[in-house]
């Protein structure tokens, strides 16, 4: 089963992402903030984390760096998304993310990106 963890503080977007990934056959876990991410990563063990950057008092980029530097989760792929222009100045080498997605996005492009990461994981 393809497991994906989606974190976004905007309820409508979170629900929408849950719907489309579920319909694509993913096992989906939705979180409105990254507060309990560590336990979810351990219990749910997602292959991919799709996460917003600006989430109230939480910063997606900080969480991403935490995951990427944590030796417990070496295989977890992280995709960052934002409606701001952060990616005009942030490069993946700085966030250590496996991909950047600008909102609004084309869902086909997002599927392609996630599939690509899953293939890497499989390989």
């Amino acid at each position: 089963m393809k497991r994906i963890l989606i974190i976004d503080d905007n309820g409508s977007n979170l629900e929408m992402l849950g719907l489309i990934f579920t319909s694509e056959g993913f096992e989906v876990k939705l979180l409105p903030d990254p507060q309990n991410i560590e336990s979810v990563l351990r219990s749910f063990s997602p292959r991919v984390v799709l996460m917003d950057i600006v989430m109230g008092r939480f910063s997606g980029t900080d969480v991403c760096l935490w995951i990427k530097k944590n030796p417990d989760f070496p295989l977890v792929k992280v995709l960052l998304m934002t409606a701001s222009n952060a990616f005009k100045t942030l490069s993946p080498s700085e966030t250590l993310a496996d991909g950047h997605i600008d909102k609004p996005f084309d869902i086909h492009e997002v599927f392609a990106l996630v599939d690509g990461l899953l293939d890497q994981n499989a390989g």
């Binding site: 905007n10 409508s12 977007n13 929408m16 992402l17 719907l19 489309i20 319909s23 409606a83 701001s84 222009n85 909102k103 609004p104 996005f105 084309d106 869902i107 086909h108």
Partner: peptide, 21 residues
């Protein structure tokens, strides 16, 4: 302008994704 654009883009993300769905 930046804030408004950002705020507009958030619902637009939902609209656009739902439409594609």
């Amino acid at each position: 302008i930046g804030m408004v654009s950002h705020e507009l883009k958030t619902p637009l993300t939902s609209i656009s994704a739902y439409l594609q769905f």
